[in-house]
Design a protein around this nucleic acid. Structure first.
Lengths: 251, 251
DNA sequence: TAGTGGTCTAGACCACGCC
DNA sequence: GCGTGGTCTAGACCACTAT
């Protein structure tokens, strides 16, 4: 029963370090506090800096630490819970939507999205870029892909001489036209990804930072009328589905 | 407009490597194929092994590669989509449930779970361990925490002399008693974590491997009647919510 | 300019799976 | 035993932030 046996298989140093640091964070540090720098910590624990960094990386992945180049390593606040389902069935940009429109483009969607939209190769779609903020900090970016066929009311690829609409207006128009459609259902998938350069910049992270990618399909008229790909910071966010809000998250 | 400018800021080598490898995976390798070993690849690209490994780590995180000590690095199949919501509202172990019961224990829940259950410090709960398999492979492990008060029909902490039920029977009994309760609602949260030693072993991964942690709260009688903490392999899994199954995932 | 975390190197040895 | 990926070291230099 008692698991107090001696280590039969020695655990890696970085794993042990992580445990020790984790306990220290619980007992000796306050949220926002700056830890000693990496060289100092490595020396204090008698390990190489690379080994220490392996432990810090894990803790950052778990949302316990935040590291910023040129500044230092700080103790992270608990992850924020972000509701992914504002209303049972609703188009993006509807009531209760936490997103802010930030850009518009017309482009050929990435292959994975093209597959979901059953779009022809090379066909372009409306792409609305949005960002989600919490407490003034950007926590997620999103690209909403809408095939031209879903929103015939929006000027399509105008012949080059007619520059259609300014971007802000085009984005608003796409969302407005979407809301006219009958939303028959939607679909979500969550997976782990790493931030592409642009997303990383918007989220104030380095490229490759771990992110939770939420792919939402919106169905209307028997087809996929739109696809949203949302990229959440994995270190600081907890995604909630149908939060019931009975109890505060303690412990 | 055109973003074809020269690199003003050179990207890190490992980032570039990752891109190159990613493209090679798309075009030159089949799923399951074994890549050249790390020393060979590092030499081929003219970088240190550690740098190459940084690139491989990213690709593994994204589910593109699978690395196994003593074996090699293989090209991973696309992630499997696992439905998290078998039925709109249902207790664990109900119809359509993909989990297999594997163990039972009576224990004091971890602090975070105790908070969700509003359990007194030191109070023990029923803990049912379950595993989810797909194509014969374990993809997730779960611990279902049920306070004794939620299932009065299950023998509680018997005085030491009466060893209550064998584990398998106890687990089944907990689930059966749960199903008698009126399920008033449920709640889910998804976040990134790293596999604890035991979960890692069950999932055939190394400790610290990235996992998606799904926390489900089950409400009954105005309180949280049970909490399930499910740990999915982040490298191989895509979690789906209310899959609509209109289109195959192409591209 | 000083100090931080981020990248990179060239080694070494270890734990594991397979033959 | 041999080859694989996993861990670890002791350095170096770079990019960024704050002062």
């Amino acid at each position: 029963m008692g698991t107090t046996q001696l280590e039969t298989v020695p655990e890696p140093k970085y794993w042990h370090l992580k445990t020790v640091l984790s306990e220290a964070l619980d007992s000796e540090f306050a949220v926002g506090e700056i830890l000693p720098n990496e060289r100092e910590l490595a020396a204090r624990f008698g390990v190489a800096r690379a080994t220490l960094r392996q432990a810090l990386e894990q803790l950052e992945l778990e949302g316990r630490l935040q590291r910023r180049r040129g500044v230092g390593t700080t103790v992270a606040p608990p992850r924020v819970g972000l509701d992914i389902v504002p209303a049972p069935q609703s188009w993006p940009g509807g009531p209760g939507d936490a997103w802010q429109t930030e850009g518009y483009e017309r482009l050929a969607p990435p292959a994975a999205v093209a597959g979901l939209l059953a779009a022809a190769d090379g066909a372009t779609v409306h792409a609305v870029r949005r960002t989600r903020y919490t407490q003034g900090q950007p926590v997620a970016t999103e690209v909403l892909y809408v095939p031209a066929g879903s929103v015939p009311g929006v000027p399509a690829d105008a012949p080059q001489e007619a520059p259609a609409l300014p971007d802000g207006a085009a984005a608003a128009r796409v969302l407005r036209e979407l809301h006219r459609l009958d939303l028959e259902g939607q679909d979500r998938a969550v997976e782990l990804g790493s931030a592409r350069a642009e997303d990383a910049r918007l989220l104030d992270r380095l490229p490759g930072a771990p992110v939770l990618v939420v792919t939402t399909r919106y169905f209307s008229g028997g087809r996929t009328a739109a696809v949203a790909v949302s990229t959440y910071r994995a270190d600081t966010c907890r995604l909630t589905f149908g939060a019931h809000d009975v109890l505060p998250v303690a412990g």
